[in-house]
């Protein structure tokens, strides 16, 4: 039984230890009995196919890299949209989900098109950066998402968010965050989001199991669970 992860821009959009998400999913899927294969694609590749993957992941990048990645990914728009429409689990973290909207405008006024899956436009600031811890909630999840936001995006006039920002510590102006379409998730939290939020990793694993017609095998991830409880307590006290 084989599971395949497509790690998009693995060496280009990996600014905040985002590789941890792929590594933790590899482990969790192995624990479910899968032989796991990770296919890495990047900015120099001109042959990206999205077919047949169990998870597609993309992490954070600098603003200039996000812009370059968005321009590059646009060439593969149809294949990506087909994968999303087919229900493939997809996760874009940090500023990466900015590529899923209509456009990105850089701080110096350059504009590029996004994948157009959502009706938002991203505008990047240069004078201020929004950094801080966040606690978020979402329909369908009984646990809160925790983590850190580190970006300079502003999105105006969009009402299709997935997450409600319940609490922030630091300079975060967002009341809502992220998007969802079928099994595609975009969230602004950076780094190893799936390590910090073990229930979300489990959710994605169950989804992948289900798509393979496999029953979820219960596993304990003691350190992730303890870390989650400690961090949630510290952020909400």
């Amino acid at each position: 039984m084989k599971a395949s992860i497509l790690y998009l821009y693995y060496d280009f959009m990996n600014l905040y230890g985002d590789n941890g998400n792929v590594r933790i999913m590899e482990k969790r899927l192995r624990d479910q009995g899968f032989d796991v294969e990770v296919i890495r694609k990047t900015i120099t590749d001109d042959d990206i196919s999205f077919e047949g993957f169990d998870l597609i992941y993309c992490g954070s990048g600098t603003e200039s890299r996000l812009f370059a990645a968005a321009e590059h990914l646009k060439a593969f728009e149809d294949g990506f949209k087909s994968a999303v429409a087919a229900g493939t689990p997809v996760l874009f973290t940090g500023n990466a989900w900015g590529m899923l909207g209509r456009s990105i405008t850089s701080h110096d006024g350059k504009k590029t098109g996004g994948l157009g899956l959502f009706g938002f436009d991203v505008r990047e600031e240069i004078k201020q950066r929004f950094t801080g811890d966040a606690v978020e909630s979402a329909k369908g999840f009984d646990k809160q998402f925790i983590g850190f936001i580190n970006k300079c995006d502003v999105i105006d006039g969009f009402d299709g968010y997935m997450f409600k920002v319940e609490k922030t510590i630091g300079q975060i102006p967002y009341a809502q965050d992220g998007v969802r379409k079928d099994n595609l998730f975009g969230i602004s939290l950076i780094g190893p989001v799936l390590v910090k939020n073990p229930f979300f990793a489990e959710y994605l694993v169950r989804l992948i199991d289900e798509r393979h017609g496999v029953t979820y095998r219960e596993e304990r991830y003691e350190h992730e669970e303890k870390g989650y409880r400690m961090t949630l307590k510290a952020l909400t006290e």
Binding site: Y16, D18, D133, F148, G191, K196
Partner: peptide, 9 residues
Amino acid sequence: FTSDSSWLW
């Protein structure tokens, strides 16, 4: 306090 331990990765 910060939750950000992403640098460990």
